[in-house]
Design a binder for these strands. Structure first.
Length: 749
DNA sequence: ACGGCCGAGCTTTTT
DNA sequence: GCTCGGCCGT
C-alpha cells in the first residue's frame, strides 16, 4: 500500500517522521522544505494523534503562509482549518488582539507602517527640538528598530547609553516615541513582536494559554529570525506536557546560506547555535535539490563556497545538466534592458515559454525603471513587485487614515493626516493649537477636536472643525448599525468628504490612476468581507497593514515579474535574469565600503546564491560597462560573483546590437561621489554629435521643437556632467543652450 | 491657508 | 533622476 510519505527521499522522510523534541532541518535551496513541513504536519495529525488545534506554523510572508495553508489543506484530511498557519506578525497581532489590555494597551490598537512612523518621529523631533540635520529621523528610527529587534526597552536603552551625549539623546527620543505610540494606542511593526514577548514575560496566564495551545511549532526560513522572534518562539515552545516536562516540540527549517536579512536584525546565531539553545536537537540536512539544472546548481555552489562562515553542506541534483549559465557584458544599462526584454519576447513568441516563466531580478528597486520603459515599449505584460507598495500610495493611505480614524479615534497620526484632506481650511496653526490643548489635557488629538470651541485661539476655525467631527461621528454611528454593510464604508467616506471629486475634476492620467487605485481598495474590502467569517473594520485594517507587495503575486495571469533579489526568496522560475552584476551594484557599494566588508560581502554573496537558485532551467547574468545612477554615469567592473563561477559552467555572450565604443576609461572604476566625478567634463567638452549613445532622438542638423521658442536647428550637442547640453538656433529667439532633459525638445521632420 | 518652487538627500535590501 | 520637506509669496 502506498502512502503520501513514499514520495519522500530518505532524509525528508526522517524529518517528517521525527517524533518529539527539537528538530533542526537544514534545507538547501530547492530541497523541498515546504513539502517536508506540510507532510510533517499531516503525519503528526494522522499518525501521532496530534490535535490540529495544537499546531502552529510560522512563516515570514503572507504568501508563504498562504501557500503552506493550501498545501496543508490538501494533504490533511480533517481539521486542517484549526492549524495556525501565519506570519510572525499576524500571529502576534492575533495574540495581542486578545491579551494586549493586560499590558496597558487597548485591544483596538492601530498598526503603524513606515510612513506613520516617520510622521510620528517628525513630531517627536520637533517636540524635543532635535536637530534633524545632525540626527536624521531615519537614523533615529533605525536605532529604535534595532533596539526593539534586540528586545531593548527605552529604559534599558537609557541605561546602556551611560554618559554618551548622542546615545542619551537617542534614548530620550526612543522614550518619547514610545510614549506617543502608546497614547495613540498604536504599535509599529517591531512592537508587534516586542509587545508579544513583553506580554508573555508579564502575564503567565497568557503565556501558559498559548504554550498549551501550541504543542507543536514549525518555523520556516528560520535563518531570518531576529532576537525578538527567537525569544518569542523559545517562550512558546517552553510549555510543559501533562507530565510537567518540557518537550520543545519545535521544528525549524532554514538555510544559513540563504540568510539575507541581517540588516533587518536577523541573527544568524539563531540557526548556527540552535543545537546549544535546545539540547538534544536532532539535525537533518536536506541536500538534494529538485529545482535547478546541474549547471545552475553548480554555479550556485561555486559562488557560495567562497563564504567562510557557513555550515558545510553540498547540494546536489539528479536533474539534467541543462544549458550553461549565460553571461553578457552589455555596454550600458539601457542596452541591458533593451536586449534582455527583446530576448524574452522572442522566446515567448517562439512558443518556448510563457511570460510568467520569466523573472528579472536586481539588487535595488531603482534598477526596475529602465526595464519598465522597455517592457512598455515592447508591449510585454509585466508586474513589478515592491517598488511602491499599493498600500503606501497617497490616496490609499488617506482612505485608510479615514478608516483608522473611524475605527480608533486614538490614532493621532491618522487623524492629523486627514483633518485637512480634502482641504477644509484647517491649517498648521490650528493643528498646533489643538495639539497643544490635547497634550495639556492629556487627551487624544481627536478628543481635543470634539472640544474645538473650548480651545483658546480657535474662535474662527472651530467652525471648520466641528463639521469634520460630526462627519466622523456620523460614519461611526452608521458603522455600528446592525444592518450596515461594511463594504459600503469607503463609498460613504468618499461621499461624505468629496474626496473623489478633487480627482475627477483634475481629469489627468495621474488622477485616473488614483481613482483606479481607490476602486482597487474597494475591491479588496469586498473580497475581505466575503472571505471572512466575522468581518470587521479593524480586521480589514489589520490585514491591510500586514501585507507586502510580494503577497499579491498572481501566478494565474501571464505576465513576467521584476523584483529585487530579496523579494525573490522562496520563489522559483524557469527563466531567471539577474541584472546589474557589477561591483558597486551587486555587491553593493555599501557592503564593499562597510566597516566590516568581509561580513557584508558574505551577505551579498548569500543574496547572489539565493538569486541563482531561483532558476530552474535557464539562468542569465549580465553587467553593463556603464550605467546611470542618480543622474550620473558610473563605470563598474563586472561583479566578483561572476568571476566566482567557473568558466566551464558559463557561456559568455556578446550583445547583439553593437554600439560603437565610446570613451571607456582604460581601468573601469567605481565612482560614488557625484560631485567630484564628471566623466565627460574635461577641458574640452566632447562632442557627441552623430553618436548614437544615449537617448536623444535628434542630432546635430535636425529641426527640433521647443515649447516656448518654437522650431529651431540643433547646432551642437555636448555631454555635461549629468545631461546633454544642446545648442539650438531659433530663428525668432536666437541661439539657446538648453539642457536636454529639461527642455524636452522633440524632433520635427 | 495654500500653492508653488527649490534644494537636499537619496538608494541596499523589508516584515 | 526623483521625492519630500521647507520656505516664500500671495
Amino acid at each position: 500500500m502506498s502512502n503520501i510519505y513514499d514520495t519522500l527521499n530518505p532524509e525528508q522522510k526522517k524529518a517528517v517522521l521525527h517524533d518529539k523534541g527539537p528538530l533542526l532541518i537544514l534545507a538547501g535551496a530547492g530541497s523541498g522544505k515546504t513539502r517536508v513541513l506540510t507532510h510533517r504536519i499531516a503525519y503528526l495529525i494522522e499518525h501521532r494523534n496530534v490535535n490540529p488545534w495544537n499546531i502552529l506554523a510560522i512563516t515570514f510572508t503572507n504568501k508563504a503562509a498562504r501557500e503552506m495553508r493550501e498545501r496543508v489543506d490538501q494533504i490533511v484530511g480533517y481539521g486542517s482549518e484549526n492549524i495556525w498557519v501565519s506570519t510572525f506578525h499576524s500571529t502576534c497581532v492575533r495574540i495581542l488582539r486578545r491579551f494586549i489590555d493586560r499590558i496597558g494597551y487597548e485591544r483596538s490598537f492601530s498598526i503603524y507602517d513606515t510612513d506613520d512612523q516617520k510622521a510620528l518621529m517628525r513630531e517627536v523631533c520637533k517636540y524635543l527640538q532635535i536637530d534633524t540635520k545632525r540626527m536624521p529621523e531615519r537614523s533615529l528610527l533605525s536605532a529604535i528598530s534595532k533596539a526593539k529587534d534586540e528586545l531593548i526597552s527605552p529604559e534599558e536603552f537609557e541605561k546602556r547609553a551611560g554618559g554618551d551625549y548622542n546615545e542619551r539623546k537617542y534614548a530620550q527620543v526612543y522614550k518619547e516615541y514610545q510614549k506617543r505610540l502608546k497614547s495613540s494606542n498604536a504599535l509599529d511593526f517591531d512592537d508587534l513582536i516586542f509587545k508579544t514577548v513583553e506580554l508573555f514575560m508579564n502575564d503567565k496566564e497568557a503565556l501558559t494559554y498559548y504554550q498549551n495551545r501550541f504543542r507543536y511549532i514549525m518555523v520556516d526560513e528560520y535563518q531570518d529570525t531576529n532576537t525578538a522572534q527567537f525569544r518569542l518562539i523559545h517562550l512558546l515552545a517552553s510549555g510543559v506536557n501533562e507530565f510537567g516536562k518540557k518537550e520543545y516540540n519545535l521544528c525549524v527549517v532554514g538555510d544559513d546560506d540563504q540568510s539575507i536579512y541581517k540588516f533587518r536584525g536577523a541573527n544568524i546565531h539563531n540557526i548556527l547555535n540552535f543545537e546549544q539553545a535546545f539540547p538534544n536537537t536532532k539535525v537533518i540536512k536536506l541536500e538534494q535539490n529538485y529545482r535547478s539544472s546541474k549547471n545552475i546548481l553548480n554555479a550556485a555552489n561555486e559562488v557560495i563556497a567562497n563564504n567562510t562562515k557557513r555550515k558545510e553542506k553540498s547540494l546536489w541534483t539528479d536533474n539534467e545538466d541543462g544549458d550553461p549559465v549565460n553571461y553578457t557584458l552589455f555596454e550600458s544599462d539601457i542596452e541591458e534592458a533593451d536586449i534582455i526584454t527583446a530576448e524574452i519576447k522572442r522566446t515567448v513568441e517562439n512558443n518556448k515559454a510563457n511570460y510568467n516563466d520569466f523573472a528579472i531580478l536586481y539588487r535595488t528597486n531603482a534598477q526596475s525603471r529602465i526595464f519598465e520603459e522597455k517592457l512598455i515599449q515592447r508591449n510585454i505584460p509585466y508586474k513589478i513587485i515592491g517598488s511602491i507598495n499599493f498600500y503606501a500610495r497617497k490616496e490609499i493611505k488617506d482612505i485608510l487614515a479615514y478608516l483608522k480614524t473611524i475605527d480608533n479615534g486614538l490614532d493621532n497620526i491618522a487623524v492629523k493626516r486627514i483633518i485637512n484632506v480634502p482641504r477644509r481650511g484647517i491649517g498648521l496653526t490650528t493643528i498646533d493649537r489643538v495639539n497643544d490643548y490635547a497634550l495639556l489635557n492629556d487627551i487624544s488629538f481627536y478628543e481635543a477636536l470634539t472640544r474645538a470651541y473650548q480651545i483658546p485661539g480657535l474662535e474662527r476655525t472651530a467652525s471648520k472643525i466641528t463639521p469634520f467631527v460630526s462627519m466622523i461621528e456620523g460614519l461611526r454611528s452608521r458603522l455600528q448599525q446592525d444592518s450596515y454593510n461594511l463594504t459600503e464604508i469607503i463609498d460613504d467616506i468618499l461621499d461624505a468628504t468629496g474626496y473623489l471629486k478633487e480627482f475627477e475634476d483634475l481629469d489627468t492620467e495621474e488622477a485616473k490612476d488614483r481613482i483606479a487605485n481607490i476602486d482597487e481598495l474597494v475591491n479588496k474590502l469586498v473580497t475581505y468581507v466575503e472571505d471572512t467569517d466575522e468581518p470587521s473594520l479593524s480586521g480589514f485594517l489589520e490585514e491591510v497593514a500586514l501585507v507586502s507587495d510580494i503577497d499579491n503575486l498572481d501566478e494565474s495571469s501571464d505576465h513576467m515579474v521584476l523584483m529585487t533579489l530579496h523579494s525573490a526568496k522562496g520563489l522559483e522560475f524557469p527563466y531567471v535574469y539577474i541584472c546589474g552584476m557589477e561591483e558597486g551594484i551587486f555587491p553593493s557599494y555599501m557592503s564593499i565600503h562597510a566597516d566590516n566588508p568581509e561580513e557584508e560581502i558574505e551577505e551579498e554573496r548569500r543574496l547572489c546564491y539565493v538569486g541563482i537558485t531561483r532558476a530552474k532551467k535557464c539562468l542569465s547574468l549580465s553587467s553593463a560597462k556603464h550605467r546611470m545612477l542618480r543622474g550620473d554615469i558610473m563605470y563598474n567592473k563586472p561583479s566578483r560573483f561572476i568571476h566566482e563561477i567557473p568558466r566551464y559552467l558559463m557561456k559568455v555572450n556578446m550583445p547583439e546590437a553593437n554600439m560603437p565604443e565610446i570613451n571607456i576609461p582604460a581601468t573601469p572604476r567605481y565612482h560614488h561621489s557625484q560631485k567630484n566625478y564628471k566623466p565627460f567634463a574635461t577641458a574640452e567638452p566632447k562632442n557627441f554629435a552623430g553618436s548614437n549613445m544615449g537617448s536623444l532622438d535628434y542630432e546635430v542638423g535636425d529641426s527640433v521643437k521647443h515649447i516656448k521658442f518654437g522650431i529651431g536647428t540643433v547646432t551642437n550637442i555636448v555631454m555635461g556632467g549629468k545631461d546633454y547640453e544642446v545648442t539650438v538656433d531659433f530663428p525668432r529667439f536666437g541661439t539657446k543652450k538648453l539642457i536636454a532633459s529639461f527642455a524636452k525638445l522633440t524632433r520635427v521632420d
